[in-house]
């Protein structure tokens, strides 16, 4: 009953690989010639199509916004006073010619990158420590768990009391926001690490330092990057909020300032700038994460390999131990 399964599933996967965009070209005999290359060629076409869809989605949103505002739609929601994309674009062009806009961007970037870098180092170090040492967990986790539910922005009064300058306070808020998701994801990733790799390094004579460097740090990277992505997201939320409360430069400060003088196009320029900066930083982390975890078996490559590997050889890679954990840790951290 179970014997014919491998052949059947192989046939199923290879037909699944052929399926997307199976144009009515020739017949089943032709694709057998160079299956690998055919699949890859289709993958790039599919990739282009996906990019077109993504871009199209943005364009549609902006077009909808333009129509709602220029047509002065008032149907429950009122769009008649909201600036149109054209007005916002004009305001942006005006700001791009002055120096203040760039100064604000730079200031916000310096704040978030400083806070985020500190949070990454501290979050990864403490996450590993509390996962690996019961004693460290007993000492460090109770205060961490009590502070964790407090929204970082609610720490503003403390930041004002404790830090001599506003600048330090804002960096602290950013740090506090990013620290917890990074720490929690790292801790989960370390605990989910298969013991086999550690055993292997130990039987080579490796000590704690070797296990940490050759197993724990690389093995937890997929999970850690989950935490870094979430951390970057909340860090932006908090740096902008903190700038709105205190600060002399920065995109958040400028946006709030524009609101107080009822300059709505400038408010929207600020919001769009935050959106673009946030997206750029998140994308950089995503890209870095993918580069550093190339060793993970990825879904699309796996499908391709399965289709090429002969039936007798069941050794094709199956699991990515850290991969699943990444999502799980991040989910928990964000709650």
């Amino acid at each position: 009953m179970s014997t014919p399964a491998p052949a059947a599933s192989l046939a199923a996967t290879s037909s699944a690989v052929e399926a997307p965009g199976s144009e009515p070209l020739a017949s089943g005999a032709v694709p057998a010639v160079r299956p690998g290359r055919r699949v890859r060629g289709r993958a790039t076409t599919a990739g282009l199509r996906r990019w077109a869809v993504r871009l199209g989605s943005l364009v549609v949103v902006v077009a909808l916004w333009q129509w709602l505002t220029t047509a002065d739609v008032r149907a429950g929601l009122r769009f008649d006073r909201l600036p149109s994309p054209a007005e916002v674009a004009a305001e942006l062009t005006r700001q791009l010619t002055g120096g203040l806009y760039y100064l604000d961007l730079a200031q916000s970037m310096i704040r978030i990158l400083t806070g985020f870098a500190l949070a990454s180092v501290a979050g990864i170090a403490l996450g590993v420590l509390v996962a690996r040492s019961r004693w460290a967990a007993d000492v460090l986790l109770p205060p961490i768990e009590v502070v964790r539910p407090i929204p970082a922005i609610a720490l503003v009064p403390i930041a004002i009391l404790v830090f001599p300058t506003d600048e330090q306070g804002i960096v602290f808020i950013t740090f506090a926001a990013a620290f917890f998701p990074i720490m929690v994801s790292t801790r989960h990733a370390v605990r989910a690490l298969p013991t086999l790799w550690e055993d292997a390094v130990r039987t080579m004579g490796g000590g704690r330092r070797h296990v940490l460097w050759h197993v724990v740090l690389p093995g937890t990277l997929p999970g850690v990057f989950g935490g870094l992505s979430v951390g970057m997201g909340v860090a932006w939320i908090c740096v902008i909020s903190a700038e709105m409360i205190s600060g002399e430069f920065g995109v958040g400060y400028r946006t709030w300032h524009a609101y107080t003088v009822v300059d709505y196009p400038a408010v929207l320029v600020g919001m769009a700038s935050i959106g673009v900066l946030g997206w750029l930083t998140s994308a950089s982390i995503e890209l870095l994460g993918r580069r550093l975890t190339r060793w993970l078996p990825r879904a699309e490559e796996r499908a391709e390999e399965r289709a090429v590997v002969p039936v007798g050889d069941r050794g094709a890679p199956e699991r990515g131990p850290g991969g699943r954990e990444a999502g799980q840790g991040a989910e928990e951290a964000v709650r």
Partner: peptide, 19 residues
Amino acid sequence: GPSPDRAMVFQDDALLPWR
């Protein structure tokens, strides 16, 4: 404890996948 004098070969998946 473990020692490099006593090397071990495991059943499967003991290679470090990132190396």
